[in-house]
Each structure stands twice: as C-alpha cells, then as structure tokens.
C-alpha cells in the first residue's frame, strides 16, 4: 500500500537536446489504478523505469510514502514490475520464476511454497507450476509474469504494456482480470499502455 508522488520528474540522455521525460508531476494514491496513455516514444516507459529504479532520475523527485526514492536502488524500493516481453527466466520452471524474488528476501521452505501456490491458485497457474516458459502459451506466460509480481506482495505494481503481446480476445479478458486482481489486492498500480 503506497502513495507514489512524482515531482517535476525529468530524464535527459547524454547527447540529446530534448529531454526524454520533461518535468512530469503526478500523484498516485494508495490503491489507485493509474493508467498512462500516449503514443509510442512519448516517455511513458521511461517514466515507469525511473519509478522502478531501472533508470537514473536526471531531475525532480520521486517519493513513495513520502520517502525520497531518487538514490534508492531498484531492489530496495519494494516495487514489482511486469515487462512487455514478460522477461521470464527461461531456464527456470514457473514455480522457480515466481519464487526467485521471494528467495532473495529470505523466504524459503513451506512458507515459500505456500505463497507460490496461493498466487498460482488465484491466477489459474497451478497446473503449470513445473513447466518452463517455453512450454507455455502467450497468455499463460503473461500470467506467470503477473504472478511473479503478485507473489511478492509489493507496495507498488508497475505494468509496462503487459498486454501488447496478446491477441485481441485474450487482451480483453486479461484486462478485466487485471482490474479484478487490482481490486482484490488493493495495491497501487501504474499501468502504461
């Protein structure tokens, strides 16, 4: 549960005269589902990556629950991100993909298994836990990517065009599924599309 505040957030790349992101100010309330919409190349993804901590912030401030996050590394921000390409670890099973982040946070054994199972249950992945990503369909992979984020129970959820690789029918159903999940979890979400 968190409030995300962007204050005059900017991103300059060296060698480019125009900023990639120019002084964006925005507040995402606790439990809010914020959608950033715009043409490709307008800086939505860059903004999201700055919030995630994957890009340095050139100017401005990023606050999560009133704590300045500019210099805090990605791994300590307690944010989960779903990537457009899903970025599933190809050498791990679905279970290990979902457990990867939890293991790093010292969760293991029965507790780990319980959390992975519970998450898999909610998004219908239980039958696929022992499969590797290459043996899954596009929609299933997308759900693994989502599950990997949900299982961590993060303060903030970032979604970078998570539906663009799905076909139209699947996109509609996944989108409503996503809204339902967000309501259930009550987590702050920023969605770029």
């Amino acid at each position: 549960m968190a409030i995300v505040q962007l204050k005059q957030l900017s991103k300059y790349y060296s060698g480019q005269s125009e900023p990639a992101v120019d002084a964006v100010s925005l507040t995402v309330d606790d439990g809010e589902f914020m959608v950033l919409l715009g043409p490709s190349g307008c800086g939505k993804s860059t903004t999201l990556r700055m919030v995630a901590g994957l890009e340095n912030i050139s100017a401005g401030e990023l606050l999560i629950d009133d704590v300045l996050m500019n210099k805090i590394p990605a791994k300590d921000r307690d944010i989960a991100m779903v990537f457009q390409s899903y970025a599933l670890y190809p050498h791990m099973t679905v279970r290990d993909n979902m457990a990867f982040g939890l293991r790093r946070r010292g969760i293991k054994g029965a507790e780990l298994e319980r959390r992975v199972r519970a998450t898999a249950e909610t998004i219908g992945l239980t039958p696929y836990l022992d499969r590797k990503p290459h043996a899954l369909s596009g929609g299933q992979r997308q759900r693994v990517a989502l599950g990997r984020a949900i299982v961590r129970n993060p303060k903030v959820f970032l979604l970078d065009e998570p539906l663009s690789n799905l076909d139209a029918a699947l996109r509609v159903s996944t989108r409503s599924e996503l809204v339902k999940q967000q309501r259930n979890l009550g987590t702050t979400m920023i969605y770029v599309t």
């Binding site: 990605a74 791994k75 990537f83 899903y86 970025a87």
Partner: peptide, 18 residues
C-alpha cells in the same frame, strides 16, 4: 539476451554479481 531479463532480476532484488 534481452535486457528485460536483467531488469526483472534487479527488480527481484538481485545484485549485479548474483
């Protein structure tokens, strides 16, 4: 190898060497 894979691992909390 896609950069997203490495970004995902960073979000999962892993250091560069890990």
């Amino acid at each position: 190898l896609p950069q997203d894979l490495f970004d995902a691992a960073r979000m999962d909390g892993y250091s560069d060497l890990e």
